[in-house]
């Protein structure tokens, strides 16, 4: 079997298929379960500086082409989260803490205290007032938040980007200037659904984020654009639900991928994807390195 281990974004990963932020990431036990099921690394639920209960329900709506969610960043605050990370780490794969704040200072404060193998900065959640993409759509804020966390943390810092912008490349370049070790693309696309029986917006928060199948072509395009210009690695996420999707994302330029919505089908997805990539590499007599960014090299 070809090796799937890689060094990406400052971490040694036994395989490039990670659990995405906010998916079964509330407890250490559920993160550990993802790791034991074969994830090469796991990203936690985004945690902030004060506890939040999140938006009222419905918090998810299944639509034909994917999933809408507006969880509203529920979390117990970083002060109450270290034990969950500790439990998650007992599975032996890197645990990346996703963190959010409303300013560079708030982000840095969390990064100074919380211990994890890396940080992923949520500058991209599209449905929480004062947080996420409300900062993350401004390149200067992306740069200053990244810089502040880099100065505060002694582990790799990944920056998760929003696709809800005219030019994601600008955001990626800003993260790179701020000193990011990798960018993660993409978070959900801002979206909504309306109940036609009554006219009520279906999500408790009215707006939410679209994930799953529908956003994969958008994610592939974003990763392709970013990987073509950035010096730092790109981690691809959005709509991956099979090994074929993962191969496509890696060809677009992703050094590693994250899987979110596909966990609706259970934890078996990690093995399904990693085994599929292995078989593919074997059949093609290729390495992961050959695969990464192939689409960019083909179009030169």
């Amino acid at each position: 079997m070809p090796s799937l281990s890689i060094h990406a974004g400052g971490l040694d990963l036994k395989n490039p298929v990670l659990l995405a932020a906010g998916i079964l990431g509330t407890t250490g036990a559920s993160l550990r379960r993802a790791a034991l099921a074969g994830a090469g690394g796991v990203v936690t639920k985004s945690v902030g500086s004060v506890p939040r209960e999140g938006h009222p329900g419905p918090t998810i709506v299944h639509v034909k082409c994917g999933l809408l969610n507006a969880m509203g960043l529920p979390n117990p605050s970083y002060r109450d989260f270290q034990q969950e990370i500790k439990t998650a780490r007992s599975a032996g794969v890197p645990v990346i803490a996703s963190i959010f704040g409303s300013s560079a200072t708030e982000f840095a404060q969390i990064a100074r205290v919380l211990k994890a193998d890396a940080f992923e900065l949520n500058l991209s959640c599209p449905h929480a007032e004062k947080y996420g993409s409300e900062l993350g759509r401004y390149p200067d804020l992306v740069e200053s938040v990244t810089g502040a966390v880099k100065a505060a943390a002694d582990v790799p810092v990944w920056v998760k980007l929003t696709p809800n912008t005219a030019d994601i490349l600008e955001l990626g370049l800003a993260a790179q200037r701020g000193g990011a070790d990798a960018v993660v693309a993409i978070n959900t696309l801002k979206a909504m659904a309306i109940d036609i029986e009554t006219g009520y917006p279906m999500l408790g928060n009215r707006y939410g984020g679209l994930s799953g199948q529908a956003i994969k072509p958008v994610a592939v395009r974003c990763v392709y654009e970013l990987a073509g210009r950035l010096e730092i690695p790109v981690i691809g996420v959005g709509g991956i639900s099979s090994w074929e999707d993962a191969v496509e994302m890696i060809m677009a330029g992703a050094q590693a991928v994250q899987v979110g919505t596909a966990l609706l089908g259970g934890y078996g997805i990690f093995e399904e994807i990693t085994c599929g990539i292995s078989r593919y590499l074997e059949r093609k007599s290729m390495t992961l390195e050959d695969l990464c960014g192939l689409a960019g090299r083909r179009s030169q």
Binding site: G22, I23, L24, G25, T26, T27, G28, A29, S30, L31, R32, R33, K45, G54, G57, T59, I60, H62, L67, N69, M71, P74, G260, T261, L263, L264, G266
Partner: peptide, 19 residues
Amino acid sequence: FKCAAGICGSCCLDPDGVR
């Protein structure tokens, strides 16, 4: 329960993470 679809992690039981 938040999602009731096995994806958000809100309902997971320690120590095995049963959803």
